[in-house]
Every structure is written in structure tokens, then in C-alpha cells.
């Protein structure tokens, strides 16, 4: 593997007296898809927020293309421009149309010409089948449609890496598929992706690496067949059997 696009080294994050991350290591190579799994409260969201500089780490480093982005002297806004992030919910700006949501960052942040950005955004929306919704406001879209637009919006800034935090967990089951289909396509196009997910079946199909987060560290990581099918760690097995009981595998 060449130099990782995103390299998380010994990241520690403490909230009050709760050390949520206790030294997380995670290297994500170019075109790789990494699925972060772990119980509720294991720190998946926290890790992604640290990686996208929405939280300051309490120790360790995050490297983006070899550059230490946890260095306080760095321009955090500049770094965030090179990442795309999609959260569980509340992604879209309700007072802006779908198209304006997508074109906002490329025009305002990256200063690219409006017409060019617009055409590109329409092409992206067409690809996810939402071109005719371009003029609508987000509250007129279904949850699944909103999340698809959120992915497109994150892609519109041409990020080096896409960070997805349980983007389907707030959706009705029948809407999950359409959102995952978009992620699958984006992955197939070669985007580097880190996604926290509870969808083990999807992780198995799409991820190159599955990382199991437990006790504030990546306890086990490897190809999905191995981590999900034949885990080494007892904790991983426990977690997976709970997930199977919940009918999510």
C-alpha cells in the first residue's frame, strides 16, 4: 500500500472523565473503503469528528495525505475542504434548495465559477436520479432522498476522502437501500471512504477493511470475511452475535 490518504495515529479523545478514544490507529489507503463498526457509544462518531476536525484531539495525530492536520498551526477550514462528511441527519440546509445546497461549498468556499459548478451539480444529481428535485427545498424530500443529496453535496467539493457517519440509521428500512446504492457507486468510482455503520451486510459487500472499535481502540481490523466471519477477538464475536440477534447481519 502506498502512503495512506487518511492516517489516524494513536488518537485520544476525552470528554470530561470519559476517555472515549484511547489511542486509535487506522490507516486508509487510496480508493479504500473502511467500515467502522462497534457498539453504541464506542466512539465511531467521535473518531470521524476528530478526523474531520470538528473536534480537537487530546492526543495523537491525524494525517491527511501525509500532512499532520492536528497541528494547531494548520488552517482547519482549509483541511476540511479536502474532506467530505455526511452525518446521520440534519445534513441539508433547509432554507436552500437542493441545487443550492450542492453548489454552496464549491462556489463560496472554493470560489469556482457558478455555471461550471451548476452543470457539475446537475450531472451528479442526475446520476442519483434526483435531477428533477434540484429546485425543491429539503423538507419536500424523503429522508432517503435527503441523504443521497447530502452525499452528492459532499462529493461536489471533490474531497480526498469521504467520511460517512451512520448515514442510514435515521431512515426507514425501505429507504436504506437507495442510499447504500449511491455509496456503492461512489466506492466503485474509486472514492476513498470511511464509514461508521450498523449495516453489517453492506460492510461485508462494499468494504475492503472492517475495523472494530471497542474500549477506545481499534480492537480488530481486516478484510470483512475475516473480521465479520471469523473474528479473532472474543469481544468482536460477542458484538457480532448481538448484532445477529438483532437481525442486522
Amino acid at each position: 500500500m502506498s502512503e495512506p490518504v487518511l492516517d489516524v495515529r494513536g488518537v485520544v479523545k476525552v470528554f470530561g472523565d470519559n476517555a472515549v478514544l484511547r489511542g486509535v490507529d487506522l490507516a486508509v489507503g487510496e480508493h479504500q473503503v473502511v467500515a467502522l463498526i462497534g457498539g453504541s457509544g464506542s466512539g465511531k462518531s467521535t473518531l470521524l469528528r476528530c478526523a474531520s476536525l470538528l473536534e480537537t484531539v487530546d492526543d495523537g495525530q491525524v494525517l491527511l495525505d501525509g500532512e499532520d492536520v492536528t497541528d494547531p498551526r494548520i488552517d482547519a477550514d482549509q483541511v476540511r475542504r479536502r474532506m467530505g462528511v455526511v452525518f446521520q441527519a440534519y445534513n441539508l440546509f433547509p432554507h436552500l434548495s437542493v441545487l443550492d445546497n450542492v453548489t454552496l461549498a464549491p462556489t463560496v468556499v472554493h470560489g469556482r465559477p457558478k455555471a461550471e459548478v451548476r452543470d457539475e451539480a446537475m450531472a451528479l444529481l442526475t446520476r442519483i436520479g434526483l435531477a428533477e428535485k434540484a429546485g425543491e427545498y429539503p423538507d419536500r424530500l424523503s429522508g432517503g432522498q435527503q441523504q443521497r443529496v447530502a452525499i452528492v453535496r459532499a462529493l461536489a467539493v471533490r474531497p480526498r476522502v469521504l467520511l460517512l457517519d451512520e448515514i442510514t440509521s435515521a431512515l426507514d428500512p425501505e429507504l436504506v437501500g437507495e442510499v447504500l446504492a449511491v455509496v456503492r457507486e461512489v466506492a466503485a468510482q474509486g472514492m476513498t471512504i470511511v464509514m461508521a455503520t450498523h449495516e453489517m451486510g453492506f460492510a461485508r459487500q462494499v468494504a475492503d477493511t472492517v475495523a472494530f472499535l471497542d474500549g477506545g481502540v481499534v480492537l480488530e481490523s481486516g478484510p470483512p470475511q475475516q473480521v465479520l466471519g471469523d473474528p479473532v477477538e472474543a469481544r468482536t464475536r460477542q458484538f457480532l452475535s448481538r448484532v445477529i440477534d438483532a437481525g442486522r447481519l
Binding site: 470538528l54 477550514d77 475542504r81 467530505g84 433547509p94 468556499v109 467539493v157
Partner: peptide, 29 residues
């Protein structure tokens, strides 16, 4: 909602842009 701010910041908008383009229009309404 705080996620709105997080979404704006993660798109690379700075504090001022986030306020002007994302937060204030919603707050004003």
C-alpha cells in the same frame, strides 16, 4: 440545530460564512 453548523464547517465554510449563509437565515425565520 448544531448539526447544521457541523455540516457547514465540514464543507469548509469558516465561522463567518457559516453564520451568514447557514445559521442566520434560519435563525431570522
Amino acid at each position: 440545530h448544531p448539526s447544521q453548523r457541523a455540516a457547514a464547517r465540514s464543507l469548509g465554510l469558516n465561522h463567518r460564512q457559516t453564520m451568514r449563509i447557514v445559521v442566520l437565515p434560519q435563525a431570522l425565520r
